[in-house]
Amino acid sequence: MSLPAGFPVERIHAMYRRMLLMRAFDEHAGWARREDRLRGSVHEYTGQEAIAAGVCAALGERDYISSYHRGHGHCIAKGADPVAMMLEIYGKAGGVCGGKGGSMHVADFSLGILGANGVVADGVTIAVGAAQAVRLLDEDRIVVAFFGDGALNRGPMLEALNWAKVYDLPVLFVCEDNGWSDRTPTRSVTGGPGIVARAEAFGIPADSIDGNDLLAVACSAGLLAAEVRAGQGPRFLHATTCRWRGHLALDRGLYRDPAELATHAEQDPIGRTRAWLLAQGIAPAVLDGDAAEAAERIAAAAALAEAAPCPDASELCTDVQDTGAPSWQ
């Protein structure tokens, strides 16, 4: 881990607090799903937090992000309210999408969060389109597309890489490479030399880093985002990481190698960042306090979500369409 000279420790500390919030949120979400306290698919981001934290730290509020099914962490990193998100994944009134979307569709347009997405790679085509709108409207924004390594084998992903390069769009592609395409090792279903080579084949400069190293993510994302912002065209960040949990919360993980799982603790981006912050002179009590605060915020959000009412039945037919709305029938 190393930072450019003058990089404020406090910025890393702030990212660390965001990571704690992501961890606490998804540890609760996964537990709640396994306990049948909420419904639907829940894909925990646990273990991958450094990527969202480090990348979103390079963004401003006006910048857009698109995400995928494992999307809670990206929303929290971009500043979404964990209470509104918790209400959403519980399908409750007051959820950020009114309880209609759930875990795979958390979004907050007021913060430039264009949405998690239930279809692999679809958020990436949406991201390049968002960049086209930025270009057309002559706005000062960049777009980040988060996706997993599994997405690299979907056609729209490859189309979108080509597209971004052809139109030289302000997009930073961020591949969170946890090695898994759902429950299949990505390398077992991927031809050729791999992910970075695919990006480079389209003429997009790529950087490959240890995505469990928050400082590495922050440094690389900062540089790449600055290049994108300067109008140098699309960039690609390949961040290797570990998926601690199953593909989704109800995945029993029978296919996982215990030896691989055992390596996760030492890779833990939160533990590694904590060690670095301690080495910078931050007191252990301060860091313990950060963890306690994150746990309290999530516990309070969960309690609120458990007790909250569900959406009213009248919400069923709202927001479908204006012309030819269901009530028309």
Binding site: V124, T125, V128, G129, Q132, A133, V134, L136, V166
Partner: peptide, 20 residues
């Protein structure tokens, strides 16, 4: 555009939700 219907459509959606 390239012959990329998925991205022709997907990018149009992204551009539509971002003000165009």
């Amino acid at each position: 555009t390239p012959i990329s219907e998925s991205t022709i459509m997907g990018s149009a959606i992204g551009a539509a939700i971002c003000g165009t």
